[in-house]
Amino acid sequence: MPSAIRHLLFIVVPLLVVFAILPGVYENHLMLFNFVVFLILAQGVNVIYGFTGYLPFGYVGFFGSGAYGFAMMVMHAHASAPVAVIAAGLAGMLIGLLLTPLLRLSGAYFAIANLASSLAVLHFVANPALEDITRGPYGVSLTATFNPEAAYWAALVVLALTLGVVVYLKNSRFGLALQAVREDPVSAGMAGVNVVRMRVAAWLASALIAGLAGGVYAWYVSVFFPDNVFSGTFSIFAIVFALFGGVATIIGPIVGVLILYGVYNLIGFTTPQYFQLIYGLLIMGLVLFLPAGLVSLVTRRGRHVP
């Protein structure tokens, strides 16, 4: 059986089935929805960081753009929610396209520039002068499309597509070429890989994923402010979850989200006073002892992790 089919059958399908069944078992649907959103975002970070080495500290810029792309389509074009979600993805991609010059930077310089660009997008959207278009800082209320149940299913579709992209990257020449670019762009270029095109493609795919996630998030919550959807927490969580599990794998970010976001909620509900302490210690432990993520526990023993 080809490995791509195996990955789809034994990782992607079971995960989707679990999240399709859970709303019938567990009533806190928004928590499940947030799990799905973070699964999407962690895989989005995986696409750009895991396969190209660019750490997107301002990843929330695409997410927020997607949320506002959704809102503007609903408010001004009176589009249906599914159409608005597609527009949200395109809005994320558009911002990604505008920010492609950032790919000329690398390492910490790229991370900082990306963070600054996400703040720039936030302040652009929240500008009171754009009240007629984005509602500026005053927030949007999308009562016409309010349908949390449909938004949850749409999030699952986006998750399926995202996982499909990651499975493709993991099993294709394209993904291999991206990893070659990440390891040594000069050698990859000498070997015939179009470095710029590869990086831009991964960058736009990652932006599209975050934009779609922002779109379904806007659909679900329906009332939000720029501060809600451009909150730096989305970037930080997505990056930490992906790193905790292990990037450049399919399973790493999934494990990272399930464990860390699970612990996050568990602490939040039981011992909120120790929240930051426990979470901080967990992340410090990761950085000190498992810099390559949880999957490295397996890969150290010479085993392959999909």
Binding site: L30, F224, D227, G268
Partner: peptide
């Protein structure tokens, strides 16, 4: 903790 995503989950909880 002033986090809106966390607040959403907790309201639901």
């Amino acid at each position: 903790q002033s986090n809106t995503a966390t607040a959403s989950t907790l309201y639901n909880q």
